[in-house]
Design a protein around this nucleic acid. Structure first.
Lengths: 238, 238
DNA sequence: GGCGATTTATGACAAAAGTCATGTTTTGCC
DNA sequence: GGCAAAACATGACTTTTGTCATAAATCGCC
């Protein structure tokens, strides 16, 4: 696997404002900047593997990455889909554990790697940054708790509708009325995200299409009727 | 709802060694100690409610507490079962959000309440404590990710077997061969923990009993054969 | 100690979702 | 442009799980 490097200055990174590094002092940011390695990844390449020891932090500059767990039969479950500006792998770093998930590139990505020593140094020196990281982790945890409860008690149909709306928030490109999801997921990835079988996703997406809730646009999905989709996501009874 | 208070000195608390407060300097600990309120709760009482604003941190001195989310149809999903020494409600405190779950006493409890101002003060002054809190949150998150993947791809049978083994770790009272789970959960609570219907839990527990994997002892369950139960928890195929 | 309420248990059935087989379409690549 | 591989789609069928009804057991309380 060839390592194609690239160069970017953190200070000039367009994702800085969306990132946890936003607000860092110029010295701290340049400490990060001067010690990072930036690598280009192709679709399908892995960034880190479940069960290995983390050695640093990944910061996504471009592209999309899925973070997933593999079960014994090899079925994936997608924990997150990370976008530019997101940090990756800091959970395991802070809990001092091995990675409990694998990260794979969904769409060609540019990713910066920050050695854990540099990350920890800035973290320790900078209580405000620490506080932001903690806040982020705790927010993420709230999201997970919500998702877990849905996994426990919602039907696959409801969860799929919910996932469509969730991705709409992050990847939705507003048009008139409808919204194109600017992310190309295979049916298998959708299944891993929702926690179901590929065939089930295919059937349900076809249903949604037949009901004119969504339409297909190449490998992408257009959300035609978010409101009715939201009804599908909640409860048939409600 | 009557508030029965009680008194306990943090320095003398038998759970201090298991708690995140362990290792705090005498001054910091006495700051916590001097500003806390200790309340006795009866089974069924609520400690905090989903959707309300957290005002402090709960530290469990005795008893057992379930933390759960309620879905639209009123179905519960239990996120955690907290035991003496555990902190409660700090996630929402650190993410500066409303509680996203409700906490209810499962077995009569003694709980200390620490105003958020005092908690944050100690947190800010004490980077080592902060680091421990962060580590704890991140570990918890790893556990949640694991559980979420199981929820997505394991059968109810596997998850129930897994929950029995999980509670065995915390509440197991070792005997010869078998282990009594020292926690009295209703079938409904088991269902909320596993993420299924009450009837399904009843049937599966009966199955496990018929297979001599477990036995019933009053309201408690005795694990007779952890190894075979572990096989049930993993994969029928494996 | 008995009575009503709650919890546990069981059966019958329906609905949801998974699996397997097979076919079709799309994609990547030489 | 053609071919193999991968992705997508559909049908048939099975299994799992949820729901509803009802009965039995247990608990709390006067």
């Amino acid at each position: 696997m060839q390592r194609k490097e690239f160069t970017i200055d953190c200070q000039l990174c367009i994702h800085l404002k969306d990132s946890l590094f936003n607000g860092l002092s110029p010295e701290d940011l340049s400490r990060i900047n001067n010690h990072k390695t930036c690598i280009q990844y192709k679709k399908g390449q892995n960034i880190f593997y479940e069960g290995t020891r983390p050695t640093g932090l990944f910061c996504i500059n471009g592209g999309k990455v899925k973070v997933f767990k593999n079960n014994v039969q090899g079925k994936e479950f997608i924990l997150y889909i990370a976008k530019p500006g997101d940090f990756l792998g800091y959970r395991a770093l802070l809990s001092e554990e091995f990675y409990c998930a694998t990260a794979t590139v969904l769409e060609d990505a540019k990713i910066c790697f920050i050695q854990k020593e540099n990350f920890f140094e800035v973290l320790q020196k900078n209580p405000v940054f620490m506080k932001k990281v903690v806040k982020q982790v705790c927010q993420q945890m709230g999201i997970m708790e919500e998702r877990m409860a849905e996994l426990a008690h919602k039907s696959v149909r409801e969860r799929l509708a919910g996932s469509l709306l969730m991705l709409k928030e992050t990847y939705g490109m507003e048009g008139e009325e409808s919204v194109l999801l600017d992310i190309a997921l295979s049916r298998e990835d959708w299944a891993s995200l929702v926690g179901t079988a590929t065939e089930t996703v295919i059937r349900l997406l076809s249903d949604f299409k037949a009901d004119e809730l969504i339409s297909f646009e190449g490998k992408k999905i257009r959300v035609l009727d978010p409101k009715r989709l939201a009804k599908q996501a909640d409860l048939i009874v409600a």
